[in-house]
Structure formats: C-alpha cells, structure tokens
Nucleic acid binder design. Structure first.
Length: 476
RNA sequence: GCCCUCAUCGUCUAGUGGCCUAGGAUAACGCCCUCUCACGGCGUAGACCGGGGUUCGAGUCCCCGUGGGGGUACCA
C-alpha cells in the first residue's frame, strides 16, 4: 500500500506556523515512504474564504519546498481538489448513505430544535438533536422532500454500536460513547455539505491513507470514523499533532505577525531552517539531533516520536536553528542568498565585495535579512566616523602608526583578508607597535570602533578604494 | 453541564518501574580562545502541577483534584 497524505487548509490567506507544521509532517511522511502528498482546498464555508487566499497559501507552501503531487493547480487522478467543486461527489455520497439507511432527511427547523435545548448551566445551552425525524415513515419523508419542504440530511448514528474506538498513532487508543454523538448534519438546507462529511468523502475518494492533523480535530474523529464505516471504507491511519501556541503561550492568531510564513520569508529565514524548526515542535530525533537537513528530516521523521502536549513557539530557538543552517552554507551560496536582501541604498559599496562582506559578517547572522543590520558595522554613519578619523590623525604617535600601515597596504599585491592582515601587522612592526596598540587605532579609523571583526577581513570587505579614502581622512 | 484529551528546567525536549544525584538543546550567566567583537570550547544556575494509592522501588502504572486544550453547530 502506498502512502498518501494530504494537507487540507481553508483558503483563509497566509499560513500560520501551526498549519504549516501539519503540512510539513504530511509532506515529510509522504516523501519518506515514497508516497504521494496532496493539496486540497477546504472552502465549504464561504464566509471564511479570503479572496486570493488560495494563491497566497500555495506561494507559502512552495517557498517552504513542500511540493504536492496532486492539487487544485496541477490536477490529478482524484480531482477536483477544491471542495467547492466537488458537489457531484457529495451528492452521490448522500445518495449512497440514504439508500443504506445511514442518512435521512430531517425537516425540523431551528426553532423546532430550540425546544430540545439542554441547559448547560450558567445560561449556556446546547441543541442536542433527538433524532425524531429518523422515525418518519419513508413514504412520508419522500412526499415531503418531493413537496419541496426545506430539510437537512442527517447521519443516523448506528444504534448497534455503543462506542467508537479510535486508534491514533500519537494519542493511542481512545473510545467515545456513541450516546454523546447526536445525528449530525451532513448536508445543510441550502444544499452545502458540512465539514465532517466532506472530509470523509474526499479522503475516501482521494484514497488518503494517513490523516495527520492538529489535535483540534481529535474530537471530530469519531464522527468521521463512523462515516468511513458507513461507507464501508477502511479508516485511514490517524495521527493528531499537539497544538502549536504562540511565544506567549496563547493560541496562534492571524495578527501574530511574526509567526506567519510570509513574515519569516521576508525576514530572510532559510526555508530549510524553518522546516527544521517546525519539525522539532512536538517531535524529536531518535538521537536528539536538532540541526537537520531536509534529507535528514525525511529519513528520520515518524509519528512514533511525536509528543502529546502543546508546544510553544520560541523565536529565539528558531533564530538559532536558522543560524546553524547559515553556518553550514558555502560562502558563495550564502552571498547569493543574501544579495536580494541587501539594502544598496544604504550601503552602496557592499554590493561590490559581497562575498568578502558576508565572510566577515557571517558569524553574526541568523537570517539572510540580518545582513543589513550588521552592515552598519562596516559602514558606520559617515559624519561621526569622519570626526573620529580626524581625531586620530591629530595624534602624532597614532599618526606615525597609521602611516606605516598605509605604506604597507599600498604595497599590497592582492586585496584579500589573509595578506591584508599580514600587511597591517607588518605596518605595526615598522612603527614598533603590536597588539591592541596597533589594532585598536586602525580599527577605530576603519570602522569607528575598537571592537569588531579581524582587520584583514574588514579591509577586504570595504575594498581598496574605500580603505584609502578612510585613511586619507585621518592622514590627509 | 456532559464527553475526549494534555501536564518534566522560562522555552523545545530525552525519559516507556531500578541506568535519574532527572540527560540534551535554547535563552541567561561565568571562564577560556582572541588585539577586540562575533563564532567556538568549557562550566554554573534552572524542572518531574498537587494529593492519594500499586510496588521492595515511581518522572515512568492507577485514582482523585487543579490547570490548559478540543468537542458538544445547518463553523472548519
């Protein structure tokens, strides 16, 4: 049996990290097993749909590298992949259940049901449907339907089963008494089907073998399991993932900007790092490794090591994971990834020696977008820097050192970090200084601070022209 | 109300009755490396929600409580 998993979001727009985490698990599982991963759009609730939501969602998934084998944009043998386009399937499914007696028309209006309201206490009430239309004679039912009387289609919870047993790969075996499940609505009076019904019909027709989703759906699972049974279809393997909470421990909301995928992308987080971090939410590697490549993730992921308690997003740890991923990237690749984030208006010179710049700054960067925040180190505000350089030039002792260094730099044949570092040291030797007495004034001259990266790297980063320009401000 | 479910350092987690004096990671702090910064290395501090059982022995099993989450919709 080949594994088929799916990600089935409603097109409410940007994906938040909880959803993406579910998508990631499904994708990783499918790739590990050599199976298929499908994308399905659950747009049965019109009120929830956001214009362009599907496009944004697809964009986010693509960026993360979670590619699907069947979906609304590329089609596939089990389409359509948008619930709003699957009316024919749902109609057939309703027929089948009605024919077998597992579903029936109910004519009760919402007002009729009010009378059956149960008091929860504290003013809260619930409508638990008694199933009274279930007792209607088939002929009467047919007559009223034919007469065009408004009705919904309800599922007839089988009287023969007293408990629904769910086997969950993550939460274990759970039983739900059927006495707590009333005859729920399958199709609304306006003809639209409900979520619980649509998912099951879709999962059956799309031959989904593994349903991996958030625990929020665990309570729906018995209803869905009953439907699979009523259709005579095998139940898929279920796996419910613990909830992902925001850094504040509260539920993820759309306005929690920092947790949206699009936000991470715009900040320059590497997609592989995001995937890595997300996989660590609720799951742990058998050897507790935490920095994992995409391939390692595919090889080691599994529902058996997923925990059951809710997890909180930790932006600090995400940054750390991202930094680890950057650290292992080859310099040329890193520079290429950073180029689109470069703010050339602020740092016009940086583009010319990008590789050297990235090499100098890379140990302090966690994301591609971090480059600008640290570029100021190499390109301090001009006015202030100029003042410091003049002050340096005014000190005869310092001036002597800087001149010696400048002479050595002028003689440099290649403008690269290692030889430049040697040149600075040689200049110091010429002037009879070394250590802090040499490096500090040179560093203040170059970047306006005694603290900072190795001077050879700084010189290589700013380039020959800029280096002499800064020297000239002190020495004339 | 009723049903389901969760509970280890601030956070992510390891842990499936003795290996736990509860391990790792992150964040914090300190030391080392180094001209300095960053990286890195080493170290310090920090947790089994509470109460009852079961057992020779419980973070691990059971029950109750507390707290959190979900369902109980013609929401998904």
């Amino acid at each position: 049996m080949t594994v088929r998993t799916r990600f089935a979001p409603s097109p409410t727009g940007r994906l938040h990290l909880g959803n993406v985490r579910a998508a990631a698990f499904n994708w990783l599982l499918a790739r590990q097993q050599g199976g298929s991963f499908l994308l399905r759009i659950e747009d049965t609730d019109i009120g929830r749909n956001v214009p362009g939501g599907e496009e944004m969602l697809i964009e986010d998934l693509r960026w993360l590298g979670l590619d699907w084998d069947e979906g609304p944009d590329i089609g596939g043998p089990h389409g359509p992949y948008r619930q709003s386009e699957r009316d024919a399937s749902y109609a057939r499914a309703v027929e089948r259940l009605a024919a077998s007696g597992a579903a029936y028309a109910c004519f009760c209006s919402e007002e009729d049901l009010e009378g059956e309201a149960e008091d929860f206490g504290e003013g809260r009430t619930a409508l638990r449907y008694s199933g009274r239309c279930r007792a209607l004679a088939p002929s009467e039912r047919a007559r009223r339907v034919a007469a065009g009387e408004p009705h919904v289609i309800r599922f007839a919870v089988p009287e023969a089963v007293s408990v629904v047993e769910i086997e969950d790969e993550i939460f274990g075996d759970i039983s739900f008494p059927t006495s707590d499940i009333d005859d729920f609505v399958l199709r609304r009076s306006d003809g639209r089907v409900t979520y619980n019904f649509a998912v099951v019909v879709d999962d059956i027709e799309m031959e989904i073998t593994h349903v991996v989703r958030g625990v929020g759906h665990l309570s729906n699972t018995p209803k869905q399991a009953l439907l699979f049974d009523a259709f005579g279809a095998p139940r898929p393997v279920f796996g419910h993932l613990p909830t992902v909470l925001g850094p504040d421990g509260k539920k993820l909301s759309k306005r929690l900007g920092a947790t949206a995928v699009a936000e991470l992308r715009s900040h320059g987080y590497p997609p592989d790092a995001v995937l890595n971090y997300l996989s660590l939410l609720g799951w742990s590697h058998p050897e507790e490794k935490e920095v994992l490549t995409r391939a390692e993730l595919i090889a080691s992921i599994g529902l058996d090591r997923v925990g059951r308690s809710d997890t909180q997003l930790d932006p600090e740890k995400l940054r750390w994971v991202a930094a680890q991923h950057l650290a292992s990237e080859p310099l040329a690749e890193l520079a290429a990834h950073m180029r689109p984030f470069l703010d050339l208006a602020r740092f016009p010179g940086a583009g010319e020696h990008l590789e050297a710049v990235v090499d100098t700054l890379r140990t302090r960067l966690s994301t591609y977008g971090d480059i600008n925040a640290h570029l100021e180190l190499l390109y301090p505000p001009e006015e202030e820097a100029m003042e410091k350089r003049r002050a340096l030039g005014a000190d005869p002792e310092v001036r002597r050192v800087l001149e010696a260094v400048r002479a050595r730099l002028a003689a440099a044949e290649v403008w690269e970090a290692a030889p430049l570092d040697q040149a600075v040291r040689a200049g110091g030797a010429d002037a009879g200084v070394k250590g802090a007495g040499l490096f500090h004034p040179v560093r203040v001259l170059l970047i306006g601070s005694e603290k900072g990266p190795d001077l050879g790297k700084v010189l290589a980063s700013i380039g020959r022209h800029e280096a002499f320009r800064r020297l000239a401000q002190a020495l004339g």
